[in-house]
């Protein structure tokens, strides 16, 4: 940052979420001083209650839009933000709370709350980009430290962030992890999931859970047939596609197809 120029103002916003993605910003420990040196952290309630009024140059938005109040608030955030980045599975795909989109939210409310009449919520949970225009999305549950740092570096240097949209398999192969599905028969969502975690779970011989959502040309039905061969029931397959990114279109297509064919014979 050249002397005399104003530092870009950064804001961090929370909607329906667990705070894990904004925590990733604090988790950039060794880079925090460099970030604070180049960016004015103007609004970040998880780090400080001291806030600076907008407008903001860059807004990181965590969480999904789940209530009428959040619908209004995100529009205000959009108006105050030059560059708006949705961060994490909730903000980019609705998160785990989007499971309500496959059911009736009223049924949940009746079950959970003693006074359901006090609850104001939307029937459908929506990702940020469904409500306001979004300039960039960082996937993940939670987002990756490295990708957040890359996003900030790219923003500061005026270049496009390097956030690939290919499979997790690319990361397994580049780091030398042997395919656990082929070599051990472990069910894995890696072949339909966007990279970004450096293939963390497969490197511990665990199947990919799909935290980063569907890759850019995911084929959830072909993988589903393979998962059946590996012993998963159709109900299991509905469940593996319905976790953190359940409402992302390719995973939704996967789970809805397997829900429809439930009880019917394959082929």
């Amino acid at each position: 940052m050249a002397k005399g120029t104003r530092k870009p103002k950064l804001a961090v916003w929370k909607f329906t979420s667990c705070d894990g993605c904004q925590l990733t910003l604090l988790d950039l420990e060794e880079h925090l001083l460099a970030i604070a040196d180049r960016v004015d952290i103007a609004y970040f309630l998880e780090a400080s209650r001291a806030t600076v009024r907008g407008p903001y140059d860059i807004s990181l938005v965590e969480g999904s839009i789940s209530t009428p109040h959040e619908e209004e608030l995100i529009r205000k955030v959009r108006k105050q933000s030059r560059f708006l980045v949705a961060i994490g599975a909730c903000a980019t795909a609705g998160g785990i709370q989007a499971l309500r989109n496959f059911a009736h939210v009223r049924d949940f409310i009746q079950l959970v709350y003693a006074h359901p009449e006090y609850i104001r919520t939307l029937a459908q949970v929506r990702p940020i980009a469904d409500v306001v225009p979004v300039d960039f999305e960082l996937r993940g549950c939670p987002i990756s430290r490295e990708q957040l740092l890359e996003l900030l570096s790219a923003y500061l240097h005026g270049r496009r962030p390097r956030i690939p949209r290919h499979s997790v398999c690319m990361e397994c192969k580049r780091r030398g992890t042997v395919c656990i599905m082929v070599a051990r028969g472990v069910p894995c969502l890696g072949p339909v999931t966007q990279a970004g975690c450096n293939a963390l779970c497969p490197s511990y011989a665990r199947g990919c859970f799909g935290c980063f959502g569907p890759m850019d040309s995911a084929n959830p039905l072909s993988l589903g047939r393979r998962l059946e061969d590996l012993g998963l029931s159709r109900e299991d397959i509905v469940r593996v596609y319905r976790t953190f990114n359940a409402y992302a279109s390719a995973f939704r297509e996967g789970s809805e197809t397997y829900e429809q064919v439930r009880g019917h014979t394959r082929h």
């Binding site: 880079h31 460099a34 970030i35 180049r38 740092l149 900030l152 570096s153 500061l156 240097h157 270049r159 390097r162 290919h166 499979s167 398999c169 690319m170 192969k173 580049r174 395919c179 890696g190 072949p191 339909v192 890759m215 040309s217 995911a218 084929n219 039905l221 072909s222 993988l223």
Partner: peptide, 27 residues
Amino acid sequence: KRCLACANCTLVCPTCFCFTLEDVTDL
């Protein structure tokens, strides 16, 4: 309809040579 476009075949292939170049800058 069957292919996952996951790229595994090309990465295990001993002759496939596709690569990309990335310029990485720090903060």
